[in-house]
Write a protein that binds this DNA or RNA. Structure first.
Lengths: 202, 202
DNA sequence: CGGCGTCTGTACCCCTCGGTACAGTCCGAA
DNA sequence: TTCGGACTGTACCGAGGGGTACAGACGCCG
């Protein structure tokens, strides 16, 4: 599929991905039809199939879009001190709370719908999670360098577990329409991380 | 919708729910058509609409079926000692590992697909989780009574958080086709629970 | 101004989906 | 044995899905 070269083309393709991401996040992937997206973005089918070979490819781009959004949001927090990790968790809770209907994780809720959609999309979701984790584990490594985190902690595993706990909190919070399970899950994630701080008397 | 009265009717309806649950677990809810289910169960459409008013109602029954399955599996473990909780976690890991394609939680993977399907199914999924949690919190309360868990621990919150962490582990494990995130998540859940054991020197 | 590749509008196709209609068969009760 | 309700088989329908065909419009190059 040819990447758009002109300003107009880039704009159109970007608008499609943007709108598709929003709709899929709200209504679910399979509940969002191509026609819905075209209607919302004010484009026609010929544009769509000019830029995307199939719905599957669109989903892949939506996944990338969601990852970028999560990373951009996260980049507001350095994640290299306990305070900033704590602030990040607080911001996540606030966002989930303020978004109507407790929609869930922008990345996780879409990823979970791709598990049955073939290996291609599933593995792309796995890569997206890995990227997200590496942003966090980078911060944890910096904390090791600055002595805030013990050297025997494994940043990669810690980051993966943190994301896992976060996702579980999102799921229960969305299902129950209650912020508490997410808040409690993040408290657990934080205490798990903190257990690797030095100076803990035991 | 009339409940089946005869042996043959009960059998047919049960077969439909059973097969539907299996297919939806494997392929996803919206990727499983009524016709798929009928073909797999060897029944016709007239039977289906004789017992179910719509696909939505079938999904509701599938949800109940999955909850029962989870509870039955869990009932093998008393969950009133540290050993049995630990054994339960180990069994969950084994099951996820041995099932091909790391399919995810029989209840959670389906529930997550119902978030966009209207409030009715979403709230039924929430109730299913609540039932699951109460089975666990019951065990925790027994542990308080027998002195294995401190009295200042809140069994309901602990149970909810445990399920949340478990779900997060399932999600990452299924997405990455790797058992480690689930194993690590359960280790965190266990250590979180254990932090409420008495006799911990601190 | 002419032309060519990028971009866009519209109409259409075929298939599958959930759901309905209706006629027929099973089987226990009187 | 006949009656009636529970159960089943089959054909059909309208709607909406993803995807294609093809002609037209834009806009940067010479």
């Amino acid at each position: 599929m040819p990447e758009p070269t002109t300003r107009r083309g880039k704009d159109t393709k970007g608008r499609i991905v943007e709108l598709a991401a929003g709709l899929m996040y709200e209504r679910g992937v399979s509940a969002t039809s191509i026609e819905d997206i075209l209607a919302a973005s004010g484009t026609g089918k010929s544009q769509f199939y000019h830029y995307f070979s199939s719905k599957e490819q669109l989903i892949a781009e939506v996944l990338r879009h969601q990852l970028q959004q999560v990373l951009r949001e996260q980049s507001r927090f350095p994640l290299d001190t306990w305070e900033s990790i704590s602030a990040w968790f607080g911001a996540l809770v606030d966002m989930q709370q303020n978004q109507r209907d407790y929609r869930g994780c922008p990345l996780g809720s879409i990823s979970s719908q791709l598990l049955d959609h073939g290996d291609l999309l599933r593995s792309q979701a796995a890569e997206a999670f890995a990227h997200w984790e590496s942003a966090l584990s980078g911060g944890l490594r910096a904390m090791q360098a600055s002595g805030l985190l013990r050297d025997d902690a494994d940043p990669d595993t810690l980051a993966e577990s943190t994301i896992a706990v976060l996702q579980g909190g999102y799921l229960l919070s969305s299902t129950k329409r209650d912020i508490r399970p997410m808040r409690n899950a993040l408290a657990i994630a934080l205490s798990q991380l903190r257990s690797y701080a030095p100076d803990v008397r035991r």
